[in-house]
Design a protein around this nucleic acid. Structure first.
Lengths: 253, 253
DNA sequence: CTTGGGTAAATGTACGGACAAATGCTAGGA
DNA sequence: TCCTAGCATTTGTCCGTACATTTACCCAAG
């Protein structure tokens, strides 16, 4: 059993299924044959089938739903050049850790631009917490400016921002019994406006990394949006990836 | 068996082990008890133990080595606030795909600044390929500028840049029998210099997302470095994450 | 027509066993 | 001394089985 094969069976099966997928046999949104069906077809154990499906799941090609089946979510990743790295990555790791220092809490009404960022209608009311991100320790350097937007009904958690550990979204989950299902992240370069530049003590017009995170619940409801600005001279984001066992994906190191 | 538990056993075990780790019982670099040992200690099957270890592996806390054992690689991620998202993420997905159009290939000698980017000594010689990234199709918009640096001994693959699909690092692997083990990614905001601004047809001084990727082989040897610039007005990087089954990590959607 | 329960189907969890493959170490021989 | 063969240890792969949990669907009762 399992002697001297170049590739383990589950990986070979994953490869076969991936090729089937990309050949159009199972379009996006369709349901793959059940695990037991695959057991019969390929004459392997269910364990092997499940390992194979796990491979495809890690590559983001399928999702598995109890009671429903295994659904195809993508056929493949577009052949970019060097760009496309399927990469588990820690998002935003600060050297030594950092903390938020709240500057102000107020209520704002979304204008056109803000509405686009918050994915809401113009005129919607939000609770906004403005804060500086500093390195830990007395007099720690300011490395960023965060604006945290909460829907009015969650405004109560505003006071917990900057308090001891834990994420804002976790505070909302705990307090209101909701659950964040997805996060949308947007990243772009900007030049700092005067207010934020002054608040962080850098020159107005400094290039800055703008990082937006939009937390959504089950039906797409927006729970929380944070917009962080990091001046180039104060902060560079970096991480390292290593190859997974089978070489198909990149993992954080 | 397995009736009405709030949490499956493997996840509970993962939690226990994670707490042990963070309590300092197994310092970074140390070897965890073997799987069979954990089977005895916790009175569960090896399958359950392995699932638990897989959880910890996905969180980046351990790595498992056949014949050696399970090694602790991290105790935890520093307690940021909203920032820290353990997140498998597709890195750089362009809308509709894009292609590289090579502008020039030349040889450069690393000055102090470049040496820092390329993680080499000053005075080292590199083969540099300069290229524009455009959306596909005739007259596709220019969305970025890439500088690709190759060590002199790999200069032969320079001609394959921009040619049909596949990554540059894969070309190196195939041609020279090497294997990329890790990738370091650095991200920051910059203002474009005159040359690149002109090349992309934007105003000099435009804010730009600078993305550096440093590919390394087994002994840390640098195989390839790419530096991509994306003007803010031309490109925003975005992706979506969803929660993993057990809620411990974020996966690409 | 709506609501409820029951059933079938699908994946998830968990147990058991066995052998393969990689590594580190040791003992023995050249 | 050095090198190799072999052994013990550890994780990887693969098989089998059973039951739990979730979901979709049908059908009967109200």
């Amino acid at each position: 059993m399992g002697v001297n094969r170049a590739q383990p069976r589950y990986r070979a099966l994953a490869e076969v299924l991936r090729i089937d997928l990309q050949a159009g046999r199972y379009p996006v949104g369709s349901v793959l044959p059940g695990e037991l069906e695959l057991v019969d077809r390929h004459r392997v154990s269910r364990h092997t089938v499940r390992e194979a499906l796990r491979c495809l799941e890690e590559q983001g090609l399928i999702t598995r739903n109890r009671g429903i089946g295994t659904v195809v979510t993508a056929l493949e990743s577009p052949p970019g050049h060097v760009q496309r790295l399927a990469s588990p990555a820690e998002w935003m790791r600060y050297p030594e850790g950092s903390r938020l220092v709240v500057l102000a809490t107020d209520e704002v009404v979304a204008d056109a631009e803000l509405a686009s960022s918050l994915a809401c209608k113009r005129g919607t009311h939000w609770c906004r917490v403005r804060a500086l991100r500093r390195l830990k320790g007395r007099g720690g350097a300011v490395i960023g400016w965060s604006d945290i937007y909460l829907p009015k009904e969650y405004a109560a958690v505003a006071i917990s921002v900057g308090k001891a550990g834990g994420y804002v979204y976790e505070a909302i989950e705990k307090r209101f019994g909701a659950r964040v299902e997805t996060v949308e992240v947007e990243l772009r370069a900007e030049v700092l406006d005067a207010v934020r530049a002054k608040g962080m003590g850098v020159k107005s017009g400094t290039p800055s990394l703008a990082l937006l995170r939009r937390y959504r619940g089950r039906e797409g409801r927006v729970f929380l949006v944070t917009i962080a600005e990091h001046p180039a001279e104060r902060y560079t984001y970096g991480f390292r990836l290593r190859r997974s066992r089978d070489g198909s994906v990149w993992l954080p190191d």
